[in-house]
């Protein structure tokens, strides 16, 4: 029994160290300011693109459902990026391309990202007056 307890204790210690590593890794490498810089670089003078900051979107592999859901929206331009969506998990940003002249439905975008398992928060868009950053409309 002592033998089991010793190994169980070592496992718990290993797990604790692993958890600390995982939690400590998200030090403040990313901030609202770095997202604005990234979004500006991608969106400048491209009115048919928007960017969305989605909380929790840190992994491309887990986030592929975002592309699956967004690419089903009629107004998304599937010929741009990868089926209309470029993912930047380092900044938790999604870039979505829309067909020229089509106004994106922000609530539909919110729903698609939420249904993919994430919490979309802000959107970024280039306008005549520069970059705007605003909350997405709430889900009904």
């Amino acid at each position: 029994m002592n033998f089991k307890l010793k190994h169980l204790a070592s496992f718990i210690a290993f797990g604790g160290i692993s958890l600390l590593l995982a939690h400590s890794s998200y030090a403040a490498k990313v901030s609202p300011e770095t997202r604005i810089v990234t979004a500006t670089a991608q969106l400048e003078n491209k009115p048919n693109l928007i960017a969305v900051y989605a909380k929790g979107f840190v992994c491309n592999s887990c986030g592929i459902g975002i592309r699956i859901h967004l690419s089903k929206i009629d107004s998304v331009d599937l010929t741009s990026f990868n089926r209309g969506v470029e993912m930047d998990p380092a900044q938790q940003l999604l870039f979505i391309a829309f067909k020229p002249g089509v106004e994106p439905d922000l609530e539909v975008i919110h729903r698609a990202i939420y249904d993919a398992g994430y919490e979309p928060d802000l959107y970024y868009r280039w306008t005549d007056s520069g970059l705007i950053v605003a909350p997405l409309p709430p889900l009904n």
Partner: peptide, 11 residues
Amino acid sequence: ETETYDFYFAT
């Protein structure tokens, strides 16, 4: 389970 951009942990 938890995951950041760099690390993944599951128990």
